[in-house]
Nucleic acid binder design. Structure first.
Lengths: 149, 149
DNA sequence: CTCGTTAATTATCATTTGATAAGCAAATCC
DNA sequence: GGATTTGCTTATCAAATGATAATTAACGAG
């Protein structure tokens, strides 16, 4: 397997991931929350607490736009901001109880679909899948990875 | 590894894939083409020839919106439509020479970045990565997969 | 202390995107 | 052969998103 062949697999794979993820989550996105906002909530849910800058970096939003969307989410009562102890410029963000409940419910529904999707896999296959996820995560899809790292 | 643990890995993994893909392609998207249009071009490039309906399904666009965006791409000289021989209602789409050249160039630039990213991996690791991609592709991320399939 | 930098906010604007209604021609069904 | 369905198109509207400039407050270096 040379690198170019691997690249073709990579392209194909990422397209498939994107499509499958979309299928699993399409009608999950609660009303009153736009797709971008849902992405933010998902990110906060997994990585909280995070700063505005984290959101901006990881969700590829400019700071002004991230700030705007977060303000809306706060107004909806789904997120809370609180000042960082160490640096008073920073705003940490976490889900409110309401936001947490909403995301728990959303993840729960996605989880059901995910399980349908892997239904029929043996224990051994599940192990295999888990190992493959971790392998790719560490060797290819580690967002922090720098070419010279 | 139980299914719920696997699900958590899955969520984490898809987020990472999304983020890495974005990093690899962010400033690739040529001017004069919007992100949605770039997505269409990428899809057509990989799967051509495709029908309007295929694009609508796979890029999650309504038919009217898919039609509109494709019209713009045609006007830019990046795509060509041609009637299907069997069914005169259908419109097949493929890249024009110009569009193909543009996508070749775009993929080429992404490929360079991808190779930087996996630089340092041994031949054996590349094999491993390739196998992992295929495994996940077939067992988890096959977009066509039906729960009862 | 001052200067430059960082984190975030507000305001504003253009563009992109999503959604809907209406229409047409070709295919399919009875 | 008339009704229905499919594949696509056009037009239009509202909403979401992206981009920019200007501002504030806090931090950090010298």
């Amino acid at each position: 397997m040379d690198q170019s062949e691997l690249f073709r697999k990579f392209v194909d794979f990422t397209a498939a991931v994107h499509q499958v993820k979309h299928k699993l989550t399409r009608d999950i996105k609660l009303d009153s929350v736009t797709p971008v906002q849902y992405g933010i909530l998902e990110y906060v849910a997994v990585s909280q607490p995070v700063t505005l800058s984290d959101i901006s970096d990881c969700q590829q939003l400019s700071m002004p736009n991230a700030s705007r969307e977060l303000k809306k989410l706060s107004e909806l009562g789904l997120c809370e901001k609180f000042a960082a102890a160490d640096d008073r410029r920073k705003q940490y963000v976490r889900l409110s109880a309401k936001g947490q409940a909403m995301m728990d419910e959303a993840f729960g529904r996605v989880e059901v679909r995910f399980k349908e999707r892997i239904r029929g896999a043996s224990d051994e296959e599940l192990e295999e899948i888990g190992r493959a996820l971790e392998l790719l995560r560490s060797k290819v899809f580690d967002p922090g990875r720098r070419p010279d790292g």
